[in-house]
Simulated scan of single mutants.
Amino acid sequence: MSEWKPKRFWNAATVQEGEEGFSVTLDGRPVRTPAKAELQLPTRAMAEAIAAEWDAQENVVDPLTMPFTRSANAAIDKVRTQHAEVADMLAGYGDSDLLCYRATYPDALVARQAAEWDPALDWAEAALGARLVPVAGVVHQPQDPGALERLKTLTHEMDAFRLAAFHDLVGLSGSLVLGFAAARDWRDAQEIWTLSRLDETWQEEQWGRDEDAHAQAERKKAEFMHAKRFYDAAR
């Protein structure tokens, strides 16, 4: 049996500005989240992106074609209700950041990781006030508590919408530093995503591409790029 999808019942999606921000209405009726909260948005840019998604629906509503709507729903229904827990979880990536665990061989991979990842750690020290130290091997070594506390503070400062996007920037890249780097425009989001895939790219160069793994990586890349767009729209 195919999954039921609601039919389009409205003529036009419009953006409304109010005291609490921006909302999207369908023929004057406000869009609500799955938990029935009104979709109150922090910026006009985000509201316009969501309105465009609703306007683009044809005969039936397909949530898979509405990433901004889905992200806003998650921010309101999930992240806002457990903001501290989400922020703590993401800040925890700092103590085991992808960029800090380096190969011990071969020398070419060791050199590539240093050349491509060290600048991100240097940027984090200068821009975020937190120095994380790389280690050789995969055995956990704790980072400086002061640096971790600084990163935790910065994570907690995000509102629910930015934190929802940041969740995907960090989770998909495996790096708190790269999540901040993308959010703060250190480099182009495409380049930051490529940095997060350094080890996988190395393996492909040595052994060839696994098509299934490549397809999965491309899906994650698309999600990462959307998270960056959603973060930007929340500012």
Score class of each variant (00 low, 15 high):
Gly18Val: 01
Phe161His: 10
Pro63His: 05
Arg102Asp: 04
Gly28Val: 09
Trp207Asn: 14
Ala37Asn: 15
Thr201Met: 04
Glu85Cys: 03
Ser175Cys: 03
Ile50Val: 08
Phe230Tyr: 15
Val110Glu: 05
Asp144Pro: 08
Trp4Ile: 05
Gly21Val: 13
Ala108Thr: 01
Met158Asp: 00
Trp123Met: 02
Ala56Thr: 05
Glu48Asp: 14
Ala124Ser: 15
Ala120Gln: 10
Gln203Leu: 00
Gln40Trp: 13
Glu223Leu: 11
Val79Ser: 07
Ala165Val: 02
Asn59Phe: 08
Arg29Met: 10
Phe161Thr: 04
Ala91Glu: 08
Ser96Asp: 08
Gly174Met: 02
Ala108Pro: 00
Gln82Ser: 13
Glu125Gly: 11
Ala52Leu: 08
Leu41Gly: 11
Ala136Cys: 02
Ser96Tyr: 11
Thr65Phe: 05
Gly129Leu: 09
Ala217Val: 05
Ala35Ile: 01
Ala84Tyr: 02
His226Thr: 05
Asp188Gln: 15
Ala189Thr: 11
Leu90Val: 08
Gln141Cys: 02
Leu90Asp: 08
Met89Cys: 08
Ala51Met: 06
Lys220Thr: 07
Pro67Tyr: 11
Asp55Pro: 08
Glu125Tyr: 04
Gln206Arg: 15
Ser2His: 12
Tyr101Pro: 02
Ala51Asn: 09
Ala234Asn: 06
Leu195His: 00
Leu151Asn: 00
Gly21Ala: 11
His140Phe: 10
Ile76Asp: 05
Asp212Arg: 12
Met66Asp: 10
